[in-house]
């Protein structure tokens, strides 16, 4: 699949965020991912584009789906993939992020996939290594592959993104998924709304190119896509919202609200979901839920990203 794109359409060494990507670059990744979907649906899923390459998954934060998705993506493209278990590593012994980066770099990896609880940490690490770095989520900043897989899911279902009304609902303030999606979806011409109680909206959100709603029903009214965000349990006990009960009542997505306000909408969630809090089981498991499709698209998008970056590696 590489032969048709001899000229580099993704001229970046790292993927640190959606910010800074042009629309053609995003569309290039989505087109490549479309092909990767087909690859993944075959019995023979193995490709050789990363043959001989070493990929390290460095996750400072617990992750199931993102880490396994990156692992599968790398393996399907032929890379040797190593998962660093940070919990048992020298990081726990007090090693700094930069020291960890320099140490890993000395082992000559080609790709490092990094998740870190601090915004900006992945970019900091990328400056200390000679390989490609992919941001798998940094603090409340960006989660670019999640936004790409969301866009791919939407584009495959709706045939386009331009002109769609997409409501991103929930803990926008702490969400890297929301930030990456806001940038990507507006870049591709969607009308993006954010819907949350004021305590879960970041300052200055009105100037970030989105429409802001505090009322959930108004926020999802007539939307094409309702994208729910996960609310961390530690934020629902009086710190940011009064209680789980109150949050579910006013900001949870139920079948009733969906039918009344957005009867045509498809429902998404980056997972893992809090059933009965931000989303009812009947919606999450219902016919309009794209949640499992998002997981499938996740592997494809990550294959596309790894392939695109590998072309810019030395000897790529």
């Amino acid at each position: 699949m590489a032969a048709t794109r001899a000229t580099t359409s993704f001229p970046h060494r790292h993927l640190l965020g959606i910010a800074g990507l042009s629309r053609p670059e995003i569309e290039y990744l989505l087109d490549t991912a479309d092909e990767a979907v087909e690859v993944s649906r075959q019995i023979e899923k193995k490709r050789t584009v990363l043959s001989g390459r070493t990929q390290i998954n460095l996750f400072f934060e617990a992750s199931t789906r993102t880490q396994s998705s990156f692992e599968l993506a790398g393996k399907r493209l032929g890379a040797d993939v190593m998962n660093m278990a940070v919990a048992n590593s020298s990081v726990k012994k007090g090693e700094t992020l930069i020291d960890t980066a320099v140490t890993l770099n000395a082992m000559r990896p080609d790709l490092i996939i990094v998740r870190h609880h601090c915004s900006g940490a992945v970019e900091l690490l990328s400056k200390k290594v000679s390989c490609s770095v992919v941001n798998a989520g940094d603090g409340s900043h960006e989660h670019p592959t999640q936004a790409l897989l969301d866009a791919l899911t939407i584009r495959r279902r709706k045939g386009k993104i331009e002109g769609l009304t997409i409501a991103i609902c929930g803990d926008v303030a702490h969400s890297r998924v929301a930030r990456s999606n806001m940038i990507l979806l507006t870049q591709l011409g969607a009308r993006v709304r954010v819907v949350a109680p004021s305590t879960l909206l970041p300052a200055g959100i009105e100037r970030m190119g989105v429409e802001v709603f505090r009322d959930f029903n108004k926020g999802i009214a007539g939307a094409d896509i309702v994208m729910m965000l996960r609310l961390q349990r530690e934020r629902m006990d009086g710190a940011y919202v009064p209680s789980l009960k109150e949050y579910a009542h006013f900001h949870g997505l139920t079948e009733e609200k969906l039918i009344a306000m957005a009867p045509e909408a498809l429902v998404m969630h980056p997972g893992p979901i809090n059933r009965g809090v931000e989303i009812d089981s009947s919606v999450a498991d219902g016919s309009r839920s794209l949640i499992n499709e998002q997981v499938e698209m996740g592997v494809a998008v990550r294959m596309a990203v790894l392939e695109a970056l590998s072309k810019n590696l030395p000897n790529g």
Partner: peptide
């Protein structure tokens, strides 16, 4: 305004 008037957790103002 806060649960138990303890000043730690905000009350269920919507409900």
């Amino acid at each position: 305004l806060t649960k138990g008037l303890a000043g730690k957790e905000i009350g269920e103002m919507g409900l």
